[in-house]
Simulated assay, not measured.
Amino acid sequence: MLPSGSRMRRGEEFADAVRKGGRAGRPTLVAHLRVPPEPGETDDPPLVGFVVSRAVGGAVVRNRVKRRLRHLMRERLDRLPRGSLLVVRANPPAASARSERLAAELDVALDRLLRRRESPETRMDGRR
């Protein structure tokens, strides 16, 4: 399970990540990442929140999707910069997606978001 100190709970944090952060969409999920202006100056852990609407399914299905996403994010938490806010919104196909597909799409979304915030000079792969 995701550590308690890394779980987003306040509505303002969700709104800040969605409105001011970058966005990367995939068929099963959409990720919004807000990185503080000076990420190296904060000791706050990254916070992660999940949005699973009724369009995904009934209460049992929504809770299952949230549990699966929390489990996947626990393994990827160290990739996020300190003090960042990440909101993962599940789309309706997430209800029937296998865990491997959810993991792959979460990785792609995170890679895109983290790559966007790198400047061209600091990229390791040499691309611009």
Score class of each variant (00 low, 15 high):
Arg26Gln: 15
Pro27Gln: 08
Pro27Leu: 08
Thr28Gln: 14
Leu29Val: 07
Leu29His: 07
Val30Glu: 13
Val30Asp: 13
Ala31Glu: 08
Leu33Thr: 03
Pro37His: 05
Pro37Met: 02
Pro37Asn: 08
Glu41Asn: 09
Thr42Phe: 11
Asp43Lys: 14
Asp43His: 14
Asp44Leu: 14
Asp44Cys: 11
Asp44Glu: 14
Pro45Ala: 11
Pro45Gly: 12
Pro46Gly: 03
Gly49Pro: 01
Val51Arg: 01
Ser53Gln: 08
Ala55Glu: 06
Gly57Asn: 00
Gly58Ile: 02
Ala59Gly: 00
Ala59Leu: 00
Asn63Ala: 03
Asn63Val: 05
Lys66Met: 02
Arg67Phe: 00
Arg68Val: 12
Leu69Phe: 07
His71Asn: 08
Met73Gly: 06
Met73Pro: 10
Leu77Pro: 13
Leu77His: 12
Leu77Val: 15
Arg79Ser: 04
Pro81Glu: 06
Ser84Ala: 11
Leu85Met: 04
Leu86Tyr: 02
Ala90Thr: 01
Ala90Trp: 00
Asn91Arg: 15
Asn91Gln: 15
Pro93Met: 09
Ala94Asn: 05
Ala94Glu: 03
Ala95Tyr: 02
Ala95Ser: 09
Ser96Glu: 14
Arg98Met: 15
Arg98Glu: 15
Ser99Met: 13
Ser99Asn: 12
Arg101His: 13
Leu102Ala: 08
Leu102Tyr: 08
Ala103Val: 06
Ala103Leu: 05
Ala104Ser: 10
Glu105Met: 08
Glu105Cys: 06
Asp107Lys: 00
Asp107Gly: 04
Val108Ser: 11
Ala109Lys: 05
Leu110Ser: 07
Leu110Glu: 03
Arg112Glu: 13
Leu113Val: 06
Leu113Ala: 11
Leu114Pro: 09
Arg115Gln: 13
Arg117His: 12
Glu118Phe: 01
Ser119Glu: 14
Thr122Ser: 13
Arg123Ala: 08
Arg123His: 09
Asp125Asn: 10
